[in-house]
Write a protein that binds this DNA or RNA. Structure first.
Lengths: 142, 142
DNA sequence: TTAACTGCAAACATTTTGCAACCGT
DNA sequence: ACGGTTGCAAAATGTTTGCAGTTAA
């Protein structure tokens, strides 16, 4: 009936069993361009299937995360936030005044991170970078 | 009886009411050079004062954090970790094999972060950077 | 003395889990 | 049909809080 969402298609390609609930959650996540927490995903999914359970949402986002379909983030508010995993890695810049989350990528920083790890005898396998900022005043040129 | 710990001295200087429990917790934290979570602080404090309560530890580390005496970190294991706030800011490099936490500082990365924030019209007010790595093989020169 | 602090236990928020019923393949 | 999945409610985890009693200043 409904079109197949991008995440659902990935699941199908990988031979996952696709239940109605998983389809709904996949659709919700594919349509989201923010970084919803489980509760938000649950609320959005409930509008499509009102009898979906939050336990299923928890189980499903974990499943998707383990399958590298989703990325899990912790922005410091008490709950985990999710977004569709993308080809191109990016980090997050959070406007603490509005709560808006911007995505950015900076190759220089990434290269320096690798360098730092190497200096300490480690191979970088992951990182977490979040910047927190407030809107610039008009007269701020620093 | 016991010598005054560095953190206790800071508390005294700021006119905080110093109870026996706070003195113990201050001492434990001053003596720690790792990044203990509340439970670890509680265990260490309990060896000095066995009837201290974990609620008091929670209240005290929050108090210290709000007074900028401690820094709170989230390294992805379910609990908050603390360390004495230092003059010089540093970030963390975590060996995911051993769990060891190394501290590092990199001015270039810091400068680039500021630049990124500014590009998006924000003034950087804070950041979180954690690198995760595994030990380099001997033949890895990348 | 008295306002702040503590211990205890109950409350909280988020996430996980045991189990019987259910459903996709 | 069968094995994985779901819903529900209970449990687990980390943290906070209300309250009556205690203590530092």
């Amino acid at each position: 009936m409904a079109a197949i969402s991008k995440i659902e298609q990935i699941c199908i390609d990988r031979g996952m069993k696709m239940t109605g609930q998983r389809r709904v959650i996949a659709q919700v996540l594919s349509q989201s361009d923010d970084h919803p927490n489980v509760d938000a995903v649950y609320n959005r999914a409930s509008k499509i299937d009102p009898k979906i359970s939050i336990a299923t949402v928890y189980r499903t986002v974990r499943l998707f995360e383990e399958a590298n379909i989703l990325e899990k983030h912790d922005f410091g508010d008490g709950s985990a936030r999710y977004e569709e995993a993308t080809e191109n890695h990016h980090d997050h810049l959070i406007d603490v005044q509005s709560g808006a989350v911007l995505e950015f990528h900076n190759d220089e920083i990434e290269a320096l991170q690798k360098q730092v790890a190497k200096k300490y005898g480690l191979k970088l396998v992951g990182h977490k970078l979040e910047l927190y900022g407030v809107p610039l005043d008009k007269d701020e040129k620093d």
